[in-house]
Design a protein around this nucleic acid. Structure first.
Lengths: 308, 308
DNA sequence: ATGAAAGCGCTAACAG
DNA sequence: CTGTTAGCGCTTTCAT
């Protein structure tokens, strides 16, 4: 009998109404994903990681990009609340807005944070040790013999910037040196601004022998800037990036960079969020899991020119 | 009074239950977006275009990537039907699967197709003239004086491949030549396979003086292959891509390519789909809108070496 | 075993 | 203009 019903259902291409199921189950089976204007490869990695965990089809992924969170965190909160989600995945910089977390907690909307940098004890946290990663790239350049190293920071509202910088600082300290503040410039993670600030770095005299960029897009821009000045990479200038994005492999020379396991972290975040959603008990129990970075030494870094 | 209720609602941070609203409105306010493993920049452009239209927050975007549609179109159909969508945006190659369109029509799930290449009279169609675009790049190379032109096709299941190829063919015919079939190789739109087939092209004797790749990732791979053989671009070899993806601008030399207005097309598709959803009348009335391509001549193409 | 009924949270239609 | 009620499509409980 049960079988006959199933058969008839299949026959008629019947599909139960999800809204009715949601109404009674008191959940929507929708997971939100918020991010802010980062590189396409980052977004796609994030998204694919989360989707990888959701592939059984029980939950669906709703994408909710939102710009300038820092200046209006409560607005994002309202957006998320109105989206009828069961839970939300927060990428930087949204995951670092305490006001946003306040709103979500007050309204009991569970969340998981991917690579947050502040208030690490709140909610589900999946992260990478940015300080250790920054330390690793900087140490790589220092051990090649570089001392005049230009630094291109990312957007200061992304706290990742700070952690990586702290790692650079420690590496310099260990090498018995100090960072020259005049060789620090601020970008915003985009190619265009990266190019502009790289030009100002390369105009310094004496010129830096290496550039540490806080993401790959800006590193590639630095290579272009060097090339436009007739400098060879890595002969005259070494350049290191961050992220292991696709562009780091398609660039020439291929970029030395740090792999941030974005995909795995997103999978993990989705996994923990769903576990919290399904096991109703300790829903929002804060938990933390660190993923390892990986230094990828490729063709864009070499010892400084002999004269230096 | 009405005001007092609103105030109380705001006070309590009350948000109406969307599932209940959906149940009564008989729609979910969810729009699906299906695509298949293309380059990150393409996905993000597509997504941002659609999201741009959805930003009033009435509708939400659910991402539903699905691989190997060609071999199991009905399965995608079931996935979409079970996702409780009001409508769906179909990118290639899903938008070219008649079986999928059959399923969607049978179940009355409205859809909009972005750059389809077959059955152009079905459903809402937003497209670009691939033949004209292919014709434009090929004509560019031919008018620079190239005659031995290698061609790297994309994945043959994406019908875009065919249209662009047809455009190349017409351009050659107009120039009074014909394409040398031995200089046609097949990639799959990825960098890695692009690199491999570019190497086989460059091993031909006499070597082609130009390469026409069907997307930018493969074009960048061709540049890398040339460089690894000690060839300069565009001195020894001209390379043209397709898509105007981010990599085409960050590559060196910057790629001559064709801008496919993906973002605008996605916006348009979302717009028409929503119009159909809201104005209940002629819901699925087939309509078609063509967007213009744009040839972007940059640094990777030049006349062939004098000896040729 | 099968069938009937209540109710999830909301909106729309109606009565007061 | 305010208040009441029926019902959207489903699941779960309870009675048969």
């Amino acid at each position: 009998m049960r079988k006959r019903v199933k058969e008839a259902a299949a026959q008629l291409d019947y599909h139960p109404n999800l809204a009715a199921q949601s109404l009674i189950a008191r959940r929507s089976f929708l997971i939100g994903l918020t991010y802010e204007r980062p590189s396409p490869s980052y977004v796609v990695e994030l998204q694919n990681g989360a989707l990888g965990r959701l592939e059984d089809g029980r939950y669906r992924l709703v994408v909710l990009p939102f710009n300038h969170v820092a200046s209006r965190p409560e607005e994002l909160g309202r957006l998320l609340l109105r989206a009828g989600l069961d839970g939300v995945l927060l990428a930087p910089p949204a995951c670092d807005q305490p006001e946003l977390l306040d709103v979500l907690e007050r309204q009991k909307l569970p969340y998981a944070r991917v690579t947050p940098h502040r208030e690490l004890a709140r909610g589900i946290v999946v992260t990478m040790d940015e300080v250790a990663a920054g330390h690793a790239v900087a140490t790589h350049l220092l051990s090649l013999g570089h001392r005049r190293i230009g630094i291109i920071l990312g957007d200061p509202s992304h706290a990742a910037s700070l952690g990586r910088m702290e790692g650079y600082r420690r590496a310099f300290a260990e090498a018995g040196g100090a960072i020259d503040d005049r060789l620090i410039v601020t970008g915003d993670f985009t190619y265009d601004v990266g190019y502009r600030v790289a030009r100002t770095l390369l105009a310094h005299s004496p010129r830096p022998t290496a550039i540490l960029a806080q993401n790959d897009d800006m590193a590639v821009a630095a290579i272009a800037a060097a090339r436009d000045l007739g400098l060879s990479v890595p002969g005259d200038l070494s350049v290191a990036g961050f992220d292991n994005s696709e562009v780091s492999r398609t660039a020439w020379p291929q970029l030395t960079t740090v792999n941030q396991p974005v995909r795995e972290m997103a999978w993990d975040a989705a996994n923990r969020l769903i576990a919290a959603l399904d096991g109703e008990s300790n829903s929002a129990a804060p938990s933390r899991h660190d993923h390892a970075h990986e230094l990828l030494v490729r063709a864009s870094t070499a010892p400084p020119p002999p004269m230096d």
